[in-house]
């Protein structure tokens, strides 16, 4: 289960993206002195173990027409948050669902869900319908629509970070 130093080198080298050429994994390996067979074997393994959730196109949802991006936050009693997190995490409207700490007094919310939609009205409608359907409409919630996107890129991990 351990991710070793060679894996971390590969994770770092891949984090910026894959070269758009016929043999991208060979090129990736060249940048860190790893032959293609080792790159392929390690990547398969990292994917099988869920270290790599996904490999492929990462879209800018805004450019695809998902203009409304709402962070919907909920104040759920601690003893209920696992149950409600599972319910909302499984809802088709929700693209991300995390528990995070409250920061009282500024921030009473402990469950964070993202809902993306074509426009604000469709997000608000989807949220209202979901809240009723899933039986969570009575919990305090707040919707934070995004106003501007300043930055969107991949998280950078692994050995490449140390070199930057």
């Amino acid at each position: 289960m351990d991710v070793n130093g060679r894996d971390l080198e590969l994770i770092g080298a891949l984090s910026g993206g894959l070269a758009l050429q016929a043999n991208p994994f060979a090129a990736l390996g060249q940048s860190i002195g790893m032959d293609e067979a080792e790159v392929l074997a390690r990547l398969q393994d990292l994917r099988d173990r869920g270290v790599i959730r996904r490999l492929g196109v990462i879209v800018r949802h805004h450019e695809l027409g998902y203009r409304a991006n709402a962070m919907v936050v909920w104040d759920i009693p601690d003893e209920k948050v696992s149950e409600i997190g599972k319910i909302l995490g499984a809802a088709p409207e929700v693209t991300l669902c995390y528990r995070r700490p409250r920061r009282l007094p500024d921030w009473p919310y402990n469950l964070f869900t993202m809902i993306h939609g074509r426009d604000r009205l469709s997000v608000e409608r989807a949220l209202a319908a979901m809240a009723e359907r899933e039986g969570v409409a009575h919990y305090p919630r707040h919707v934070l629509f995004s106003l501007r996107r300043f930055k969107q890129c991949g998280a950078r991990y692994g050995r490449a970070m140390a070199a930057e």
Binding site: S15, G17, G50, R53, L55, I58, V59, R60, G154
Partner: peptide
Amino acid sequence: GVLSRFGPMYNA
């Protein structure tokens, strides 16, 4: 700019 990148999404 339709894609932010072609690459991985990690479970850090």
